[in-house]
Design a protein around this nucleic acid. Sequence first.
DNA 1: ATCTATAGCTTGACACTGTCCATTGACAAT
DNA 2: ATTGTCAATGGACAGTGTCAAGCTATAGAT
Lengths: 199, 199
Amino acid sequence: MPRFLTESDENKFRHELCDVATRLFTEGGLAAVTMRNIADELGCSRTTPYRYFTDKADIIATVRAAGFARLADRLISVGDSDDVIERIRELGHQYVEFAIAEPAVYRLMFGMSQPDGEPSLLLEAEVERNRVAVRNAAREAVAAGRLHGDPGTLARLYWAGLHGLVELHLDDKFSPDHDLDSLTSAMIDTLIAGMRSPA
Amino acid sequence: MPRFLTESDENKFRHELCDVATRLFTEGGLAAVTMRNIADELGCSRTTPYRYFTDKADIIATVRAAGFARLADRLISVGDSDDVIERIRELGHQYVEFAIAEPAVYRLMFGMSQPDGEPSLLLEAEVERNRVAVRNAAREAVAAGRLHGDPGTLARLYWAGLHGLVELHLDDKFSPDHDLDSLTSAMIDTLIAGMRSPA
DNA sequence: ATCTATAGCTTGACACTGTCCATTGACAAT
DNA sequence: ATTGTCAATGGACAGTGTCAAGCTATAGAT
């Protein structure tokens, strides 16, 4: 009988490949993420990854899923402050901080949604973790009477506002002289202020 | 002396190629936008476009610029209503309507910002037209005393909120049961409400 | 200790991409 | 009619993702 791969062996390889792909993308953009480059960096043949991933698309999806996982960890790490509003503020700042810390990955996470084939379940699960992190914060604020409206709607608006801010900043769509930090605070303040008064 | 190309000849070819590329992208995604496909659709050789465009990147940039031009036309077409706030509302709805009308182009416009080479001046100019359209509306509202804050900041927040909403919708990042129209109204109302009270 | 069946890896193709470059074709001025 | 030259073409070339056949090394059977 030949040598068999432990499940932890598979996971280890997948993890290492994911790290390499992430680094290649961060350093050289999508053009640098090539099967040959990944293989060279990993010290294996160019077709070896096909044992562990079905596609190159599968690899990209895994990199994106890992990014969403790190973002969700950040959002969840925002502890229960005594002030619910303050917690929402901190959550927003953590969101933007992640985007600034990993701009390349952030753009890959949101800019590569292609309606091809069946979507990665792992990716979908990690996105959901982010959803609930924001939704929980909104729900608590509404329950505490500090915000008014449908928690689901409020969560979506909050996420969208922050995401739009980050994307336009990363794409340099804003006028040249803008400070993302103060703009982030302004967005958070404006949204929260708008959510305070009953509809 | 050989046959020379009129400047209008060049513009005509460029325009037709841009239309073809836009259609190919809308129908088959980025993978369908290939020099050979464009050439076949245009009835010319695969290298002929290189007389009119420097690169494939130049072609993509032109398609994006045309998209920004159509969006800017929409935003500018929002007439001076007697109510400044109502004008801002209508501008927001027009923005989202464009994204829904041309989702593929919208994603190309915002999802293809690569820090490669020198940026297309035409593209930059069309983006600026969008900026001023939103900024003017914000400026007027502040001048009329209906909104409070720095007009530039308000314009950026408004654009970012709408853009984030559209992107998360197009990328299916929201929970399954959401209505973009009502979400758009909610975003507009929330932002405007938050911008009403002095900071 | 030897043999063998086979999981995992590798190499060689293939179709495809964008783009350069030499060649061809067609036309305006002489 | 000749000619000079711009525009268009088709043949390459390096690069891509991926399939398929062959190779290697090893775990279990003898």
